[in-house]
Amino acid sequence: MLLLARGPKAKAWLWLCQLRPPVPPMTPGNEALHMRPRRHFSWQGPPQGPRLRTRLLITALFGAGLGGAWLAARAEKEQRRQQQRTEALRQAAVGQGDFSLLDHQGLTRCKADFRGQWVLMYFGFTHCPDICPDELEKLVQVVQQLEAKPGLPPVQPIFITVDPERDDVAAMARYVREFHPRLLGLTGSVEQVAQASRSYRVYYSAGPKDEDQDYIVDHSIAIYLLNPDGLFTDYYGRGRSAEQIADSVQQHMAAFRSVL
């Protein structure tokens, strides 16, 4: 860069010497004194052009170098952060949200069994008056909408009971088949259900029993989306429509990169 700069600089000085006008005779009075430097400047103008351009060029190159280095450092940092994130996700994907429950055919199921599948999961109970059937109906609509779109991976709908006392394997089988042929009902012992619900931060509490030994179970309402790594990816509350959920699931599918 220095060599490059020297060339035009030297030439400019040569040019300046040749073009310098003869020194005007000294004249008394302020006007003449003021005039001289002004003329002097106007003569020095053109040779300064290349010098200024060179300086600008050097500054620009230097700046670009600095900027490039900064960008490279930032990219490296970002890559490191991404690696850490992937590692954390990988650990979470394996450990988080695990469960061991019985499906509505009596087979033991744990989270790892659903690896490689997108899962939509809802917690409720079969004696639920209105919200659970509504939400399950919505969940099934989402699955059907996604099934209708070509090229999308299948989604496994799952219904987990929060009322293991009444919802045994047979009760779950009776219930789920009315919604979707692939809807899987999961139940288990009181402890197993408590553990599964805890993993997904689902609150539930059985209300008082009436003369018929009937009761309502109060519980949190959300549809959970798990990605094929088994990682909790999103959740949808009551306010979301089937269309909105299907759109969101599709976006997650498009953005999905396995960390396992």
């Binding site: 004696h127 008056p129 009436d210 018929d212 009937d214 009761y215 309502i216």
Partner: peptide, 13 residues
């Protein structure tokens, strides 16, 4: 048409 428990629930609802 409804279980007793549901009636209580729907009345409150």
């Amino acid at each position: 048409s409804c279980p007793q428990q549901w009636i209580k629930y729907f009345d409150k609802r």
